[in-house]
């Protein structure tokens, strides 16, 4: 059972300052079917919100609506962020593209985007070189971007989204193309941004990254928020049971009644799905019961409680990648 449903507005901790609030948002591209349906979302200063969902669920579209690049069909977007006056651009965005001025160096690109976002001339060198160090681009700062690897271009893109210290940071698949060291560095940077009061909304399929950072997760499927809450809330809705999915040759199937202590067969319509609170310790007994019943086993998949399992149960799909 989900901690909240699509119809419930996400309730914020009263101590946090809401930056942006989306209510009853609907969106569609031209005459296409709806992409987003009745989305409610409130993001507070210092909060990290993750958008999780299959490809085409509407996560990137939601980010672009928050950026004010797309106009919703109905619904409201409000909050102090939209009326704040600042010499700097208040939002930062890193999408999936890696477009840069390819004939210029990384540092020239970073300077341009920093200055465009309102960073003063006397601050820009220090801010850019500080972030270049943090994301691991210092050695490549003076090389032209056309010589960069995909990962280096992604790092530069993230740096450019972060350099003006935005109040709201919108990230679409931020870990794509990053090696584990850079990924950890990004997690540290985002944690620090959050501690300093920036709100972060990110769409990602990198579950470890989301587990590490997200204060709140919205699972979006077919344009609707199908589940939302903190990681603890969402995972507790799964219970503590481990699931095994056993693929068997259905031609030879005659299932036994007993699969071991505290093991329950919860689905036999396709691959057999067993649930147990004993974790992987129950697997040998299930295996033995199936073998003794002369069931031909084709494969076994273990599903420990976690975001991947939550995603599968809520959307009925596997995570891409």
């Amino acid at each position: 059972m989900n901690s909240t449903t699509a119809d419930e507005t996400v309730v914020m901790d009263s101590g946090l300052t809401s930056l942006i609030k989306v209510s009853g948002l609907h969106f569609r591209y031209a005459s296409s079917p709806p992409v987003l349906i009745d989305i409610d979302l409130e993001v507070s200063a210092g909060e990290i919100v993750a958008l999780l969902g299959p490809n085409g669920a509407g996560k990137s579209t939601l980010l672009r609506i928050l950026l004010n690049e797309l106009t919703p069909e109905s619904g409201t977007i409000a909050g102090p962020l939209l009326s704040m006056k600042s010499s700097r651009v208040l939002m930062g965005y890193a999408g999936e593209e890696t477009a840069h001025f390819n004939s210029l160096t990384g540092i020239q690109n970073a300077h341009f985007f920093a200055r465009a976002a309102g960073v003063e001339k006397h601050e820009v060198s220090e801010m850019v070189s500080g972030l270049m160090n943090l994301v691991g681009l210092s050695n490549e700062a003076d090389k032209v971007v056309s010589s960069y690897s995909f990962g280096a271009k992604r790092k530069l893109l993230l740096l450019e989204a972060l350099v003006h210290q935005p109040k709201l940071l919108l990230l679409d698949e931020p870990t794509v193309g990053l090696d584990p060291v850079s990924r950890d560095a990004l997690a540290d940077i985002l944690s620090k941004c959050s501690q300093e009061g920036s709100a972060i909304v990110m769409a990602s399929h990198d579950l470890n990254f989301l587990e590490q950072l997200a204060d709140r997760i919205l699972v979006i499927d077919e344009g609707r928020v199908v589940s939302s809450g903190s990681q603890i809330e969402l995972l507790s809705s799964l219970g503590t049971a481990t699931r095994f999915q056993v693929s068997v040759d259905t031609a030879s199937i005659e299932l036994p009644q007993y699969f071991g202590e505290d093991v329950e067969l919860v689905d036999d319509s396709g691959p057999l799905v067993f649930e147990t609170t004993r974790g992987q310790a129950a697997l040998p007994e299930i295996w033995a019961a199936l073998i003794s019943a002369r069931v031909k086993i084709l494969g076994v998949e273990v599903r420990e409680p976690g975001l991947a399992e939550l995603f599968r149960r809520v959307t009925g799909q596997e995570l891409p990648g």
Binding site: E69, V89, G95, E97, A99, A116, A117, E160
Partner: peptide, 16 residues
């Protein structure tokens, strides 16, 4: 060409 590559959108989004 810059618009198709997404660079134009990035420049406008960045605050220009």
């Amino acid at each position: 060409r810059d618009a198709e590559a997404g660079l134009f959108g990035r420049i406008i989004r960045s605050g220009v």
